[in-house]
Nucleic acid binder design. Structure first.
Lengths: 327, 327
DNA sequence: CTGAAAGCGCTTACAG
DNA sequence: CTGAAAGCGCTTACAG
C-alpha cells in the first residue's frame, strides 16, 4: 500500500495533525526539529500526497481546465503556452481536455468530466457550445472564460475583435489599391464569422466599393476550404485581393493559385488571418493579420484568478498587420 | 452549497446507500421506482458527483494522463487524437499536461502533479526524462508507456523503429541513384538520434557508399535547423540527397535551397521523416517516411489497459514511404 | 508547539 | 430490495 500521513505519524511518533501541518507547509507553528523529522520519514517512505483527499476536504483545487476542440486550429498551441506559463507562475496546474470535433455530445461529456472535479476555473478554447452544454457550464458555478472566440450570449471572453479583423484586413487591401476583394473560408453561421463579414462589408462601403456575394466563400477555416475557395474564384479571378480567414485557408488559396498559374501577389494578393508560423514557412510568405494568441492565454488565466471581483470584463487582445510577400 | 447525495437521500426519503447505488449505476438491486425517484431529484437539485470523493474511496480513477513537451512537434496532435479516441471507447477520461521545453524541473513537477492524483496510467509523449523524474515515475507504481520515443532504459515504449527509419530513408535515396547523402537536423545525443544514425550508416555501408561526417548536421528537429543544415551544405552542395529528420527540417532545407537557387528535386532530393500534413501543403510536396502516429496513441492506451498482464511488451508501429515531389 | 476529534462526499461489505 | 456503519486520506478549528 502507498504510505499515508498516518504511517508517517506512527513512524515519527507524532500526530497526523502535525504531519499534515508540516507537509502542507503550515510551518509557522511546528518546531524545526519536528519538521525535519517528518519530512525525512516522508521522503524515506516515498510518501505522495493524495490529491483527491486534499481536494475533498479543502473543497478547492489548484487546477485550471482547458477545453478545446480537436479541430486543427494551428494556433491553439500558442494559447496553451500562454495559459501554461501564467498558470505556472501562479502555482496552478493545468489539465487539458479535447472535446472532439464539432461533437455536441462529446463537448457535453468533456464539460461534465471537468466540473465533476473541483477545478478552479475553465478556459474554453475556440469552442462554440450548444444550449445544453452552456447550461451545464453556467450551472456549475465554476468561473469560466471563452478564449479566441467571442460570443453574443453575454458570456465572458477574451479574443481579438473580429469585426476589426475583418475591417482592417479589407482596409489594408483597399489601401494597396484593390477594388475587388474576396473573403474566404469562414463559417458564416458562427458569431465570429458574422463579425468578420460585418467588418469586411463596412470597410468596403466606407470606401464606396461594391460587394459581390460571390466573393465570399464559406467553410471551416481548413486548408481544403482554401483550395475550394480558389477553385471558386477560378483561373481568371475577378477579385484581385483576398482575405483568407485562417493561415491554412491562405496556404490553400496560394497553392491552388499556383496550380492555376495565378501569380501571388502579382495577379492576386492574399492577406491571411492568424499569423502563425505557417505564414513564414510557405513561399511566398503570407502577409497576415496577426493575433495575440499567447496573450489570450495569459489574460485568460488572469481573468479567472480575478473572477471574484464584481466586474468580470471580457477583453479584446491586440491585432497587428505583418506585411510579407503575398501582398 | 452544492448538493450531495445526503441532500438527495433526505429529499427522496431513502438512505444515502440507496442514492449511491442508483447514481453509480449499481442498479441490479434497486427497484425501478426508487431509481426513478432518486434520479429525478438528483436532476432537480442539479446534483454533480464529487470525483475527489469517489476517487478517494474507490482508490481508482478512470483518468489517463498524457505528458508532453511544449516542443512544437507538429505530430503530437495525431498521437493525442489516437489516445483520445481509444480512451473514449473505453470510458476513460484523458488529461494532458505540458511539461515545458527541455525543462527538467518542470518535467518533474508535471509528473509529480500527475501521480498525486490517482490516474490509471501515464502516456509520455516524445519525452526524455532525467534520472530524478525517471525514479519518481517508476516509484509511483502507476502504469506508464513512452510514445514516439523509444529508449534504452528498459522502459516500455511504443514508437517507430528509428533504426529502420534511418535505414529505409537512406536506402530509398540510394535506390534513386544517390551516392552522397546527408542526414539533417537530428539530436545525436538522444537515443532516437543514435538509432537513426546507425540505420543511416548501415544503409550506406551495405551499399558500399562512403560516409562523410560533414554530411550529418545536428539540431533539435526544428525549422531553423533545416535552414541551418542547408546553409551548412552550401550553394553547391556535395550531397545530392538528404534525409530530413522531421517535416519542419525538410521544409527548412527546401526554403533555404530555394534561396540558394538549388532546385528540388533536380539538384537536391529531400525525404522527410514524419509525414504530417505539412508535407502536402508545401511546394514541392515532400516525399516522406510516414509514421503511424494515430496508431501510437491507440496502442498506447491499449498497452496501459492490459498492463496487468505479466508481459508488457514495447512495440514498434509501422512506417511507410510516401513518394511526393521532392525526390 | 502539539494533539484529539470531527468531517469532507462518497462506496461497500454486511445484515436484514 | 434497502439501510446503518465504517472508512478512504486528508485538514482544521479548538484546546492545552
Amino acid at each position: 500500500m502507498k504510505p499515508t500521513i498516518k504511517d508517517i505519524a506512527k513512524e515519527a511518533h507524532v500526530s497526523v495533525t502535525t504531519v499534515s501541518r508540516v507537509l502542507s507547509n503550515k510551518n509557522n507553528s511546528n518546531s524545526d526539529k519536528t519538521s525535519k523529522k517528518v519530512r525525512k520519514i516522508a521522503q524515506q517512505l516515498g510518501y505522495r500526497k493524495n490529491t483527491s483527499a486534499v481536494e475533498l476536504v479543502t473543497r478547492t483545487s489548484n487546477v485550471l481546465a482547458v477545453i478545446l476542440t480537436a479541430t486543427h486550429t494551428n494556433f491553439s498551441d500558442e494559447i496553451i503556452a500562454g495559459i501554461q506559463d501564467q498558470a505556472y507562475k501562479n502555482g496552478l496546474d493545468v489539465i487539458i481536455s479535447y472535446a472532439g470535433e464539432n461533437n455536441a455530445h462529446r463537448q457535453f461529456q468533456s464539460i461534465k468530466t471537468i466540473i465533476e472535479r473541483s477545478v478552479k476555473g475553465i478556459l474554453l478554447l475556440a469552442l462554440e457550445l450548444d444550449e445544453k452544454s452552456r447550461q451545464l457550464l453556467i450551472q456549475s458555478k465554476i468561473p469560466y472564460v471563452f478564449l479566441s472566440l467571442a460570443n453574443d450570449k453575454k458570456m465572458p471572453f477574451i479574443s481579438s475583435n473580429d469585426f476589426q479583423i475583418g475591417y482592417q484586413a479589407t482596409k489594408y487591401l483597399i489601401d494597396k489599391g484593390h477594388k475587388k476583394i474576396g473573403l474566404a473560408g469562414l463559417d458564416d453561421k458562427s458569431f465570429m464569422g458574422k463579425q468578420r463579414i460585418s467588418g469586411y462589408k463596412k470597410a468596403l462601403s466606407d470606401n464606396k466599393l461594391k460587394l459581390d456575394s460571390e466573393w465570399i466563400t464559406t467553410g471551416l477555416f481548413t486548408y481544403q476550404d482554401g483550395l475550394n475557395s480558389m477553385k471558386h474564384y477560378g483561373k481568371r479571378p475577378q477579385v484581385t485581393g483576398v482575405v483568407a480567414n485562417s493561415d491554412l485557408v491562405g496556404v490553400g488559396i496560394l497553392n491552388q493559385a499556383r496550380k492555376f498559374g495565378v501569380k501571388v501577389p502579382r495577379d492576386l494578393a492574399i492577406i491571411s488571418i492568424d499569423g502563425t508560423g505557417l505564414c513564414q514557412i510557405v513561399h511566398p510568405q503570407l502577409t497576415s493579420i496577426t493575433q495575440s494568441f499567447y496573450e489570450m492565454g495569459i489574460n485568460g488565466v488572469n481573468f479567472l484568478l480575478n473572477s471574484k471581483e464584481p466586474r468580470r470584463l471580457s477583453k479584446f487582445t491586440s491585432i497587428k498587420i505583418e506585411e510579407r510577400e503575398s501582398t
